Simulated assay, not measured.
Amino acid sequence: MEATSTTAVGLENQNEAPDHSHPAVQQFLQSREALILQEKERRSDYAFRQSLSPTAIHACKIVSALRFEEQRTVWAHENEMFPGMMFNIAKPQMESTKLWRIVEKMPKGTLLHCHLGAMVDLEWVFNEAFSTPGMCISAKAPLVTKESRQSVSVQFKQCSTAICEGPLIWSSQYIAGTWVPVALAANTFPDTGKRGFVDWMKELCSITQAESLQHHLGLDDVWRKIQGGFGILGPIIYYEPIMRAFLWKFFETLVEDRVKWVEIRAVFATPFTRQGADSPTEDLTAVLGVINEVVENFKAANDFWGAVSFGLR
């Protein structure tokens, strides 16, 4: 677009800044608007937008106005909030906005590239473990102190030979590697009982607020934490009764978020244990059969299109 001569629109004194009504400013604004319209016509969604109903057009205007208003108020710098800030810090504020509530209720269609192990509601899964017969915990050393509970490796598994009497993992007399019912271990968690146990597990299995800001430790440090969490959660969610309940719960949350179809990524290197068995099955396709059964049953009971599973090994 050719530049417009200021003299052509009557800007004789170039030492004075023109106001908004000056012909030079008006011509610039008109040229700018025309350029924006040309750009919009080349967008991939232009034809779709042209076909919107009056109601949809009105809805778009409402959402745009709301977005602008919340940029000016919710994400104002004086509130120490701004668009593009750290997600973990912004999340509580984001979920309190009107724009979030609108997006939450909008149809989503599909969820792609969904890593199954990362979809776990930690509060739910550990409470499910407490109520699942045979689910046990062991540690490589007694977990007597808070420091030991942060550094000593723990494991979960289905075990029919768990020790229900004798030293628990919180005792200095605990024998490393002994399997203890997880419900018993949780109820006897030092000082705070089951609530404290769940909080401890959530801290071990997720990136905490403080850890999310420790960028100086590098990517490998974060990845080690994530891998450690997967190591704890894997034997729990890959135990058949919990896997079935977990998948159903997961699909329910998708439907609540207006998601109709999901592409699941699962790590089949994680051993899958059949209900009541103490050892994982050697059939690597067994977990696929369970996933398929739950998907079909859920589809029959809900407005849900389905899921496809991709295995990583």
Rank of each mutant, 00 (worst) to 15 (best):
F197D: 05
C159L: 08
T110G: 14
K108H: 04
L213S: 12
P133D: 10
L168Y: 02
E203V: 09
G134A: 14
G134C: 13
A129R: 12
A185F: 08
Q158S: 15
W124T: 02
S212R: 03
M119W: 00
A141M: 05
S160K: 13
I163Q: 13
V180M: 04
V198Q: 03
E147M: 11
W124M: 01
G166H: 04
S171A: 09
L122S: 01
K157P: 00
V152R: 00
P107I: 13
Q173H: 11
G177V: 04
L184H: 14
C114E: 11
V152F: 04
V222S: 07
L217V: 08
E123G: 01
F126W: 03
L116F: 15
R149W: 02
Q150S: 11
E211L: 06
V182S: 10
T145R: 00
I163P: 00
A118H: 02
V144C: 12
A176P: 02
A185E: 07
I163E: 14
E211N: 12
A185K: 06
A139S: 15
W124N: 02
L217I: 07
G134H: 15
C159W: 11
P107A: 15
V154G: 09
K146R: 13
N127F: 09
D199F: 12
T208P: 09
T145G: 06
H216S: 11
G218N: 09
F126I: 01
T110Q: 07
V180G: 04
F126L: 00
L217M: 14
V180K: 01
Q150W: 07
A139E: 04
E128Q: 15
P190K: 08
V152T: 07
R149Y: 03
T192E: 13
T178V: 10
R195Q: 15
A129L: 08
L213E: 08
H216C: 11
P107W: 06
K140A: 12
L204K: 12
I169K: 03
